[in-house]
């Protein structure tokens, strides 16, 4: 989603852009990266528009400011909505991608997108994720023609980032409000609350939607620590990709060992024999295809 596609005249003059995120902490729903850009010469006017850190504003005020900035022809904006399924699956891949990396990629994707429509970006202000200095180096390497300001609390320091935070926050809130659950089980509802793990509404929603086999609907970020506290209510699932990890390295992690002991598998070797067919003792053709001859079962 982004502002009108026709490139405004001011975009070919040096422009500044702010980038901020909404929904990084919640256990459910999408994470949204938003950006707002304008000509450097518009910066002064921008600071009179009452943009402030979106978290300090009431929802109605944010909605109002978002509508105002959408109508402002001197401002451009774009968002990247990252689906919770994408967050969970990237963080649970065999080669895990952590949330900082996902965040960095999203921010860089927005910069690329804005550059590609022809906006002359010269300065980009970013609310930091992880170490600010390292992040700045990473961004500067990718985009050598842009001057980066990476700072903590950038959303309250720079109006252009405050504006981006409003874009992101309003988009995230609307996305969650209008969310249509993929799952079709009976008695599901959409009283998600804010999505933050401490929110009583969110807690109640998680409690109402936990499932012993499937865990949760895909709106939930399974990679969040909050979900682990529900694991006692769920059937254990052992992944082949996790097993491979274990076989591949000599030093098995303590955590993994603990998990196996919990379900009564002590010798790892025995486990794979129990669950996996093998062609043991047969000719190579069968061994390679794990085809076992079962005469008694």
């Amino acid at each position: 989603m982004e502002s009108e596609t026709a490139l405004p005249k001011w975009a070919s003059k040096p422009c500044i852009m702010g980038i901020d995120e909404a929904g990084r902490g919640p256990v459910l729903g999408p994470m949204v990266y938003g950006c707002l850009y304008c000509a450097r010469s518009y910066q002064k006017t921008l600071s009179t528009l009452n943009f402030a850190d979106s978290k300090t504003l009431k929802e109605e005020k944010r909605e109002e400011l978002f509508e105002n900035l959408k109508a402002d022809e001197s401002i451009g904006w774009a968002v990247d909505v990252i689906d919770p399924r994408e967050l969970s699956s990237k963080m649970l891949k065999k080669n895990k991608i952590n949330l900082n990396e996902i965040s960095h990629d999203s921010a860089m994707g927005l910069i690329r997108k804005v550059l590609s429509i022809g906006v002359l970006l010269t300065e980009v202000y970013v609310d930091t994720v992880g170490d600010a200095e390292k992040y700045k180096v990473k961004l500067s390497e990718r985009f050598p023609n842009i001057k980066f300001v990476v700072a903590k609390k950038a959303d309250s320091l720079y109006p252009v980032v405050s504006g981006a935070s409003i874009v992101a926050k309003v988009t995230r809130d609307r996305a969650l409000r209008d969310w249509v659950l993929d799952e079709t089980a009976a008695n599901m509802h959409t009283t998600f609350g804010s999505g933050y793990p401490g929110d009583p509404q969110t807690k109640a929603w998680l409690e109402d939607h936990k499932h012993s086999i499937f865990g949760f609907p895909t709106l939930v970020r399974f990679s969040w620590g909050t979900c682990t506290s529900y694991s006692k209510d769920m059937v254990e699932v052992l992944w082949e990709t996790d097993d491979a990890d274990e076989d591949g390295s000599d030093g098995r992690t303590g955590k993994r060992q603990l998990k196996l002991t919990n379900v009564g598998f002590t010798p790892v070797k025995r486990k794979s024999e129990e669950t996996e067919s093998s062609g043991k003792g047969r000719c190579k053709f069968f061994q390679a295809r794990k085809l076992e001859l079962l005469s008694h079962f």
Binding site: T184, A185, V235, T241
Partner: peptide
């Protein structure tokens, strides 16, 4: 590609 430590019926088509 996993072992689900459960044997029985569940509402697959609602979730999967």
């Amino acid at each position: 590609p996993c072992c689900i430590k459960y044997d029985g019926s569940t509402s697959v088509s609602d979730y999967f």
